[in-house]
């Protein structure tokens, strides 16, 4: 039986990248600013969504796509209660959202009725950074109880993001978190990244984050 070697040279994530580009085009056409939130579990992504929605409504219309590894739509329910149009995506065990999951979710959202789309990725600091979704910016949500060494331990995630939120700064007096070391890691891996130390619980430092989002929405409307 003849055996043949075929040169393929096809990027493994090429199909994801093309779906991500289609998602981006759809969001651009509708003038919706979309951000992808990545973090380890428990950093406060959903609390950030709740506080962000509370700060931006009723002036802005917000959609939320929440990815979790189970059918339990707890986070999407929290987003909806806060005032967002929320969709839960069950990744059925997958450790990250992929562009086609976002593409399907976008079909059930009325993009013309939104200004901002917040995608809350699966809580995981390794895998989500490899899958482009078509969002305009990726935000990494770190939190003080995780420890100040995390930029050095998850360089791929810290290097690739457009904005960094350090949540739970109200806990700093009770933790051994070295803010200078953490920020050194962030700056060395990702010079020039916008960084917002804040507390979703106390509201401290929240204005900078909200201003950053509003300027993103404004750019999309131009």
């Amino acid at each position: 039986m003849p055996v043949k070697t075929v040169q393929v040279t096809e990027k493994i994530l090429a199909s994801n990248a093309s779906v991500a580009a289609a998602n981006r085009a759809k969001l651009d056409a509708a003038g919706v600013f979309a951000i992808n939130l990545i973090s380890s579990p428990g950093s406060g992504k959903t609390s950030l969504v709740e506080a962000t929605v509370a700060a931006l409504t009723p002036g802005f219309r917000i959609g939320m796509i929440n990815g979790d590894t189970s059918p339990a739509a707890l986070d999407a329910e929290r987003g909806a209660r806060a005032g967002a149009t929320a969709i839960h995506v069950n990744t059925a065990g997958k450790c990250h959202l992929e562009a086609n999951m976002i593409g399907l979710a976008l079909e059930s959202l009325d993009l013309g009725a939104l200004d901002l789309l917040i995608v809350e990725n699966v809580g995981n600091l390794v895998c989500p950074s490899h899958w482009a979704l078509g969002t305009h910016a990726t935000a990494l949500i770190a939190s003080t109880p995780e420890g100040s060494d995390k930029p050095f331990k998850y360089p791929a995630s810290y290097r690739g993001v457009d904005v960094l939120v350090l949540n739970k700064i109200d806990l700093l007096p009770y933790l051994d978190f070295d803010l200078a070391l953490f920020m050194r890691g962030v700056r060395e891996l990702n010079p020039g990244v916008s960084a917002f130390p804040l507390s979703c619980r106390s509201g401290e430092g929240f204005e900078g984050w909200i201003e950053w989002i509003i300027s993103g929405i404004a750019r999309k409307r131009e």
């Binding site: 070697t5 393929v8 040279t9």
Partner: peptide
């Protein structure tokens, strides 16, 4: 990360 070649 890409598929280089296949033998068929």
């Amino acid at each position: 990360c890409f598929v280089d070649s296949i033998v068929i």
